[in-house]
Amino acid sequence: MKRERKTDRREFLKVTLGAFMGGALFSSCSLSDLKNPKTMVKSPIKTNILRPPGAVSEEHFAQKCIRCGRCGEVCPYHCIKYFDVKTGGVFSGTPYIDVMEKPCYLCMKCVYVCPTGSLVPCAKEEVRMGVAVINRQICVSWQQDKTGLMCKTCFNVCPFSGVAIKIDHDFRPYIVEEYCTGCGICAYSCIADTYPENNGKKAIVIQPIKWKKIKEIKLEDIKKS
């Protein structure tokens, strides 16, 4: 009898301690694939919630950033927002862009005021905030048989249209991941959520990039086309 009671108590202590520690450290961070492998702190960056342009890769961002808020203050569109303790845990005070509320228009003002190198100055074409992904099941143009429309909105609004978003012979858009900056203007202006059967879903979303590999971008190629 005594033994059982003892183990019970021990287990109870373990569970409560674990729960307490977990609650204190990690629960405030929302779920995502992006987490620091050593401390298991999860990043609040997820689909459509992205770092501002020129950001270093997510594993180093919150370590370098000193939360001075200068990027948000210079942003002329006021699209840069900040996590607080509830939404970001230890990431509190780091900037993000919610492309569903206001996408980044790539004015590149923020990268020049960052004092810590969390946002590295770069050209518009080199920005890799994320990558656009088209959901072909609900895209109006991809489902032309059903909708009878050829929408092309994402193609028209893309700052690098014809390079980052191209259109095939059936007027269906597709992303060229190599050149997509992840600014989110396409996701912001997608009209698929106006269809009631889509439940407010957009046909195009921006996914954050896990470990950033900025390829050698051929600026000349972009300028030509």
């Binding site: 450290l25 401390t39 702190v41 370590q63 950033c65 000193i66 230890v90 509190s92 005070g93």
Partner: peptide, 9 residues
Amino acid sequence: IIGYPMFVW
């Protein structure tokens, strides 16, 4: 230990 600056926030 946590690996993220604390005083900054």
